[in-house]
Design a protein around this nucleic acid. Structure first.
Lengths: 143, 143
DNA sequence: CCGATTAGCTTGACAATGTAAAATCACGCC
DNA sequence: GGCGTGATTTTACATTGTCAAGCTAATCGG
């Protein structure tokens, strides 16, 4: 689940393949989904690889810069990271706050163009869909 | 700049037109742009209308629910609010973090459809554009 | 006009999240 | 083996957001 490719990709980015980095990356790949920094730290601690919070912040920042991780935009609040290969968007349920990946129609960045005339140079376009997930649609309007 | 319409709109939403609410709303309309909660509190304090932080949180939540304010998605971190009438998106500069409004091509929600087959009921789609703003494009790659 | 009820405001404390600075450790190189 | 750089760890701190309880003030019924 955590191919040695991770090491090469780190080296390509000029980063050393250290234990914390491999651990965070491997964990995100195995677990899948979207996780906050403290979430990652907690899970790694349970898995017998406790890392200081600050280290996870550093690792996550490095790996994101190296392109191994993506920071998932899901509205204000904590930053969520995921190990993703392909560019995609996110759906956030208004009721249960579940996050569901939404494949990008184009599959590459930027997948959407901003209106011309503003002089903007667009690198990427992240879409956040909001609404009700399948599970919450079925339930009544209970709080 | 803060038409009495604000009062009627509050009443329509079943809310009382109290001083804090009018102050926050008027300030956001006058100042324009995107502001965090503490930002609003600081500015109101300078303007001679100090409000407790918690009150601003309450007011902002109420006004957002009433449709007078919008919560601007601009990535993780603090929540930004703005007094907006029309649905639009945001551009965030990678260098200077400036936020620029991007008009929505459709102008109504949802302005984008998620792929079918996931069973999602989409209410709205917020797009975050990232790249370089006109000012930062001209500058060299200095940090 | 007076009291009861309710919405809203205020206060204080707290938890979560993110950031900064400095010390220690480990690897690669000479 | 000694040095220098990158990485990790530790410590401390600032910011952001939330919870709970009490108080104020506006509204409604008498």
């Amino acid at each position: 689940m955590h191919p040695p490719a991770a090491e090469s990709r780190l080296h390509e980015a000029g980063l050393r393949a250290t234990r914390p980095r491999l651990a965070v990356y491997a964990h995100l790949r195995e677990a899948g989904g979207h996780h906050s920094v403290d979430d990652i730290a907690r899970r790694l601690a349970k898995a017998g690889e406790p890392l200081p919070r600050q280290t996870v912040y550093n690792v996550v920042a490095d790996l994101t810069a190296a392109g191994l991780l993506m920071c998932a935009d899901a509205g204000p609040g904590r930053a969520l990271y995921e190990a993703a290969e392909e560019w995609h968007h996110h759906f956030v349920c208004r009721r249960c706050a579940t996050i569901i990946d939404v494949p990008c129609t184009r599959g590459r960045k930027p997948c959407l163009d901003a209106p011309a005339g503003l002089g903007l140079q667009i690198d990427e376009a992240q879409v956040i869909f909001r609404g009700l997930c399948p599970a919450c649609r079925g339930e009544p309007d209970a709080a």
